[in-house]
């Protein structure tokens, strides 16, 4: 059987997903992906007539069932401290992460 997700494509996906995998994990995941895709291919056998729209939600929203947009009124959040207490590294109110390097243009 032809593998849809080749090791090269898999590496690309892993990079896109910002994941670091052990070799065993990678092997297992790639095999599972290919297996799932076999199941997914069942979709391609379904005759889809023109004009069948995609459904982003199953339930269709009507004007009666849709909440109105929010009024533009400021409500300060009282618990900012609790938010910041979750941050792995902070400094003087800033959230700290490692750098993103730039290249100078000659």
């Amino acid at each position: 059987m032809q593998e849809e997700i080749t090791p090269e494509l898999f590496e690309h996906l892993v990079e896109l997903a910002a994941l670091e995998l052990t070799p065993e994990e990678g092997e297992y995941l790639r095999a599972q992906l290919n297996k799932q895709l076999q199941a997914v291919h069942e979709l391609q056998a379904i005759p889809l007539e023109e004009g069948i729209p995609p459904a982003s939600h199953g339930v269709s929203y009507t004007p009666e069932s849709s909440p109105p947009p929010r009024e533009d009124a400021w409500k300060p959040y009282p618990n900012v401290e609790a938010l910041l207490s979750q941050v792995p590294e902070t400094e003087e109110g800033y959230i700290v992460v490692p750098d993103i390097p730039h290249e100078a243009l000659s």
């Binding site: 929010r70 938010l83 109110g93």
Partner: peptide, 17 residues
């Protein structure tokens, strides 16, 4: 519902979940 303008605010003070 955080205010849009935080020009004069210290970092990470005009935030919510």
């Amino acid at each position: 519902s955080c205010k849009a303008d935080s020009w004069n605010d210290p970092p990470n003070t005009n935030i919510c979940p």
